[in-house]
Amino acid sequence: MTNIVEVKNLNAAYGQSKVLFDISLTIKPNERVAIVGRNGAGKTTLLKCMAGLLTPTSGTVVYNGIELGQKPPYEIARMGLKYIDQDKHVFLDLTVRENLQLSSYATNDYDWDKVFAHFPKLKILLERKGAYLSGGERQMLMIGRAILGDPKVLLIDEPTEGLAPSIVDDLVTTFHELSKDCAILTVGQNLSFVSRVAERIYAMKEGKLVAEITDEVEIKDCRYSCYL
């Protein structure tokens, strides 16, 4: 199967400080991939490079056969590669409905049924302002917004951060359902979550990918933790 995303020899730096070293990875359509690593390993930086928020010093990101080069983030998002960052920030002054409308308008996709199919709770929260949503509800809204426009890849940064264990359980199911329509690349430190979600895992350490784990048993048993 052709890869939907191919990252080749990617290097990135913040000013003089080099953060990513020769990163190469691939994602297949509808695949659930995770990147694990400690704080400061460069996981978020990698996602930012892929989403166009940070210009790599060298290397390429190819999405759906197109090299992203220095395309701005909004163009990359419109192409179907959506980034959901870790701060769980929705537009606080807007209601859930308005938040979804904003995404619909950008993508010209007004089919909210697929959003409600994944997150029925959002339907009863439509008139609630973003400021009054819980962490889990915000995460739902962020993913809901992102899946409008039928993206082919979702880049989700630390999806479980600050969420209660029961909500994390629901998120596992949601990720499995979402991957029927698109590929997911998630990064995080919650190994039990990653083990339940990912089909393939990249371990990252000090800006380098140190291992690729594909074995189901290794993933289930969190044996990859030895690489961190």
Partner: peptide, 19 residues
């Protein structure tokens, strides 16, 4: 609404596909 979102979090609006 997009203007309010620019004030709130410009970056997040770009993730949604807005210039």
């Amino acid at each position: 609404a997009t203007c309010l979102c620019v004030k709130d979090n410009e970056l997040k609006l770009r993730f949604l596909g807005y210039n």
